[in-house]
């Protein structure tokens, strides 16, 4: 473990990975409870379109991905309020983002290898600038989550009663999807577009298996995600395997172990 910390790139990878683990696993618990698990995956694919557009038109790809992701998150929310089913609303934007990405890639030949790094992540290539962006937006995201924590919890439990108690449910829902959009874009560099939703869905689902209270479930979700980042990066360092894939494999293994433990325990 000490060897790992001697390398600057590993230090940055660990810091970035742990920050993203905290943000995504917290937002993920709300999404999973709201039956919006696929939102992260949908927004990640939409971001693919944003990345491709940024590269095509010469913008900073993370910025264009952020704009695409946030606007699509609000669009999905709007469709849901217009009585389009939530999963269908996600699928519509998901398809559009991916289609746009594919079209732009086919129109240019120069940026396919860069695009590859966003698809599969390159946590070991996280630079100081990336770290600053992740820290800045990440802290902002956690602060907003803390401000709306009570309302998000109430809405996740019982939307109608939350509304009857005077909470502006539509606005708070929009806050949640925008935060999810930001978290997705921040996570792309670390685990890649194809694996982003794993950080949102798996720690939360594992925490739910442990049947605790709400606050404790958030802490469990964060703990599982942070541990997976540390274990996955260590594994990738010594076994020389892809970092993003290693982290997600650890996440899934923990989920499977908890599930097995629960299954055996209930017999």
């Amino acid at each position: 473990m000490i060897d790992i910390l001697e390398y600057g790139f590993m230090q940055r990878a660990l810091i970035a990975g742990m920050m993203i683990a905290v943000i995504c696993s917290t937002i993920g618990l709300f999404l999973v409870l709201r039956r919006m698990s696929m939102l992260g995956d949908g927004l990640a694919h939409i971001s693919f379109g944003g990345i491709a557009a940024g590269m095509f038109f010469g913008f900073y790809p993370v910025l264009s991905a952020l704009i695409f992701s946030v606007l699509s998150a609000l669009g999905i929310q709007k469709l849901r309020s217009m009585k389009v089913y939530g999963d269908a609303a996600i699928a519509i934007f998901f398809s559009f983002g991916l289609a746009l990405g594919v079209v732009l890639v086919s129109m240019s030949n120069g940026f396919n290898s860069d695009l590859f790094s966003y698809l599969f992540g390159s946590i070991l290539a996280v630079g100081v600038t990336d770290l600053i962006i992740i820290a800045g937006l990440g802290i902002g995201t956690m602060l907003i989550l803390a401000i709306f924590y009570k309302e998000l919890f109430f809405i996740a439990f019982d939307e109608e009663c939350a509304k009857a108690s005077g909470i502006n449910v539509e606005n708070i829902n929009s806050v949640l999807v925008v935060l999810a959009a930001v978290a997705v874009v921040l996570s792309m560099k670390v685990v890649g577009i194809l694996l982003v939703s794993s950080f949102m869905v798996i720690p939360a689902s594992t925490a739910l298996l442990l049947r605790s209270g709400f606050r404790n479930s958030i802490f469990l979700s964060i703990g599982i995600a942070v541990f997976s980042v540390i274990a996955g990066l260590t594994l990738s360092f010594y076994a020389d395997i892809a970092a993003g894939g290693a982290v997600v494999t650890v996440l899934v293994s923990i989920f499977a172990m908890v599930l097995l433990y629960k299954k055996l325990g209930s017999k």
Partner: peptide, 16 residues
């Protein structure tokens, strides 16, 4: 299956 204790549920009544 919602992860909330009895205390947390009743707390919602004080959120406003």
């Amino acid at each position: 299956n919602f992860p909330a204790t009895v205390f947390e549920v009743v707390s919602m009544g004080r959120f406003a």
